[in-house]
């Protein structure tokens, strides 16, 4: 899952540029990897790829603002749905 998310972020927001490195814990907002509307692209991808719908009250940096936070959030939502 981490790799899929990293690949999407690298392709979609960093356009494949390897020099723009970021760790699994880096804040995507603080590193300005995604802008204010980039998060909308991110949740559309999470829905399409993992079948996880992000509710309005879940649209929080603590759920979505790093690879590790995304993984944790998607796993939690998937378990709840199972």
């Amino acid at each position: 899952m981490k790799n899929i998310l990293r690949q999407f972020i690298t392709d979609n927001f960093l356009f494949g540029l390897q020099g723009q490195s970021f760790s699994d814990d880096d804040s995507l907002l603080e590193k300005r990897i995604i802008d204010s509307t980039g998060v909308l692209e991110l949740i559309a991808f999470v829905d399409a790829t993992f079948g996880v719908k992000v509710q309005d009250d879940e649209l929080l940096p603590e759920n979505l603002d790093s690879i590790n936070r995304l993984v944790h959030f998607i796993e939690k939502k998937s378990k709840a749905a199972a």
């Binding site: 907002l29 204010s36 509307t37 603002d65």
Partner: peptide
């Protein structure tokens, strides 16, 4: 409209 769709938490961060 796309900016308006943000949660306050994201607006704060942005």
């Amino acid at each position: 409209p796309k900016l308006q769709a943000q949660s306050p938490a994201y607006l704060q961060a942005f």
